[in-house]
Write a protein that binds this DNA or RNA. Structure first.
Length: 335
DNA sequence: CGTCCACTGGAAGCCGTGGCGC
DNA sequence: GCGCCACGGCTTCCAGTGGACG
């Protein structure tokens, strides 16, 4: 039934991006000056997960490079490569030789200098999940490099700009800002339809099935695409040649829990103990949480570290932190 | 009202690790 | 083999915030 599993992953960038033409146009307009050899305008893309930000950025960049094959550009996911060193190395990758850049023995300034020296024209740096960057110095530096056009992607605008000082702030705000909303059911169904056409046998899923998944995914295209794949797998396991209501029943929960499981697996022992302690309690305040966590591990980390863990779990969407100071409470996010 | 207290999150500094050049 | 360098993970310290309480 599945003819091309690659298409059924959220990270696949399709030939045509559904329902994001306006966003693509606005980002393209920012980058258009590059076609004449000038730097583009900086751009920022904001919106919830699964709203198509990364897809639009990658798609637009691909289009641009088809028209301008010599353009130097790099996409960096700051969640995976979050240190300034890692980002700089990835950027240098695009324009220079990094075979002699070994893990940690090359001074970070040297990377910057080599990057600058290797630039011989406009450069587009797409920084995805840029709010995960451990230091904003890098943004100032790239911003001050005339050849570099920045495309920044983040969930929430306020949180990204909160850390930036006025100079960078105003230059980024002065650039193009594109807001992404969650997809509606129709839009999400259209995305699934085109994925199904390319990744599944014809007739493997009907219109109603697509809408069911779209509706249950709450406008998150990533969940929806994962759910389509899960439903197709369920049908395959059954030996069926088309997706039925029974295959759809658990598709979205399965997709969500797969996404969550994947994230849980990346946690270390102590982070996991904090998560388990919160899960066991249902809802818990910071004091009791630290006690509960301490009981679960042999060599507990400091309270400060537990706060860092909680911040990370919150960013992962695994727990929710409510309340500000005295009335802070943590709870797990259920599927 | 002022004081105390619990908690947050930024900053600074420590340390073990690992690859490199000498 | 040794010192260097940057890293990530960690602790300690601290200013700020806001509810509780005398």
């Amino acid at each position: 039934m599945i003819t091309d599993a690659r298409v059924l992953t959220a990270h696949f960038v399709p030939r045509d991006v559904e329902h994001r033409h306006e966003e693509i146009d606005r980002l393209s307009a920012a980058l258009d000056p590059l076609l004449d050899g000038h730097p583009g305008e900086n751009a920022s893309l904001f919106g919830p997960t699964g709203a198509g930000k990364t897809c639009v950025a990658r798609y637009t960049l691909r289009q641009l490079r088809e028209r301008l094959p010599g353009l130097d550009a790099q996409y960096v996911n700051c969640w995976r490569d979050g240190s300034p060193f890692a980002v700089r190395r990835r950027l240098l990758d695009a324009v220079g030789d990094t075979t002699d850049v070994h893990r940690q023995s090359t001074a970070i300034d040297a990377l910057r200098e080599r990057f600058r020296a290797a630039l011989d024209g406009p450069f587009v740096a797409v920084l995805d999940e840029v709010d995960q960057l451990s230091s904003t110095d890098l943004l100032y530096d790239l911003n001050a490099t005339p050849e570099v056009t920045l495309v920044l992607i983040a969930n929430r605008e306020a949180e990204l700009f909160a850390d930036l000082d006025d100079r960078l702030d105003s230059r980024l705000r002065g650039g193009v800002t594109v807001h992404f909303d969650r997809y509606g059911v129709e839009e999400c169904a259209a995305i699934l339809r085109s994925r199904a056409e390319r990744g599944l046998d014809p007739g493997a899923i009907d219109e109603e099935g697509l809408r069911t998944i779209a509706d249950r995914s709450g406008g998150d295209a990533r969940v929806a695409i994962d759910a389509l794949r899960a439903a197709a797998r369920a049908a395959e396991r059954r030996g069926g040649d088309r997706i039925t209501d029974a295959d759809l029943a658990d598709a979205v929960p399965t997709a969500r829990s797969t996404i969550r499981e994947r994230r849980l697996e990346t946690l270390g022992e102590h982070q996991r103990a904090v998560y388990d302690a919160i899960r066991a309690a249902g809802e818990i305040e910071p004091g009791p949480l630290y006690e509960a966590y301490s009981d679960r591990v042999d060599d507990p980390r400091s309270r400060r570290m537990v706060r860092n863990y909680c911040a990370k779990l919150d960013q992962y969407g695994l727990i929710r932190a409510e309340g500000e100071t005295r009335d802070r409470r943590y709870s797990v996010v259920e599927e």
